[in-house]
């Protein structure tokens, strides 16, 4: 064993990268500290713990009389209304989303600004707060679930059309070419090649959106646009913690069941 071992060379330094990493780290930490400073932490109700306890207790001792009493104002009816709002809203938005998706999809044959402008429009729709949209529709059609349906229907377009357009972008060109080569028009291409290939993605994205819509529909009521959110906010205001508990349980069960069903359908689809 006469091999003389070389000494471990020092770690190579990439100064640029190091500076970059440290800058990011410092900026992040500063941002976090900045967020803590000046935040108004005062004003927490002294009874906070007690109320939280009451809500949790309410979850375990639900107000059974409220679950179903046939008045149409009970939990089951309100949950059902929520589901209907989500269903109709999603349906409307899926239909509106299709033309938007074709507009925003960045395919080979389009000028770059066409799809870019479509994407910007969708981004604006996505960023427009759903709650505000709901309030605007309340002004237009009055308070109630119709306003919720419309708000959901329009707001979901932002996300759904984006997902659709991505699905269009991921399509293979081959089938389209075959229709073109057979003398098909642009519309023929859409009907014969694009749509059949697109269908699974459309259905699966719409189902996914339905999951999201169920959650949205359950908060629209907070501003008076129908669904389970309204009785919840009332119960919170009147400090009926048992009722808050049972409504929460209801929402959780509803969301879990819907997620499960739509997941099952999506799995069957592929």
């Amino acid at each position: 064993m006469d091999t003389t071992m070389k000494k471990l060379p020092p770690k190579p330094v990439d100064t640029k990268k190091k500076i970059q990493h440290w800058t990011i780290a410092i900026v992040t930490v500063v941002l976090i500290i900045w967020s803590f400073v000046g935040m108004d932490f005062g004003g927490i109700k002294a009874s906070a713990g007690q109320i939280a306890g009451a809500i949790v207790a309410g979850i375990f001792h639900p107000d059974w009389s409220y679950v179903y009493n046939g008045s149409g104002e009970d939990l089951i009816s309100q949950l059902w209304e929520t589901i209907c709002i989500a269903f109709l809203g999603t349906f409307i938005s899926a239909i509106i989303s299709l033309p938007f998706a074709f507009w925003a999809a960045n395919t080979r044959h389009k000028k770059w600004y066409t799809s870019r402008s479509g994407k910007v429009v969708l981004a604006v729709i996505r960023s427009f707060p759903e709650i505000v949209l709901a309030l605007m529709f309340i002004k237009a059609v009055g308070p109630g679930s119709a306003a919720g349906v419309l708000a959901l229907g329009f707001h979901s377009v932002g996300m759904l059309a984006k997902l659709f357009s991505e699905a269009i972008e991921n399509l293979e060109e081959g089938a389209n070419e075959a229709v073109t080569a057979a003398g098909g028009s642009k519309f023929n291409i859409i009907m014969f090649a694009t749509m059949p290939n697109l269908m699974p993605a459309l259905i699966s994205n719409t189902l996914y959106r339905f999951d999201v819509s169920i959650r949205s529909a359950s908060i629209l009521g907070l501003v008076g646009a129908g669904g389970i959110g309204y009785p919840l906010i009332i119960a919170l205001q009147y400090r009926q913690w048992n009722r808050v508990g049972v409504i929460l349980v209801g929402i959780i069960v509803m969301v879990v069941v819907i997620d499960w069903i739509s997941g099952w359908i999506r799995k069957k689809l592929v």
Binding site: G174, A175, A182, G184, A193, N197
Partner: peptide, 29 residues
């Protein structure tokens, strides 16, 4: 184009449509 048929390397069928519908695509023109 209607008078020019084309066969592709990757077949270019609409995979999720039935064979009949794919064949009928030849008539769209």
């Amino acid at each position: 184009r209607r008078d020019i048929g084309m066969i592709f390397q990757s077949f270019n069928l609409v995979k999720r449509s039935s064979v009949l519908r794919n064949v009928l695509t030849g008539r769209v023109g």
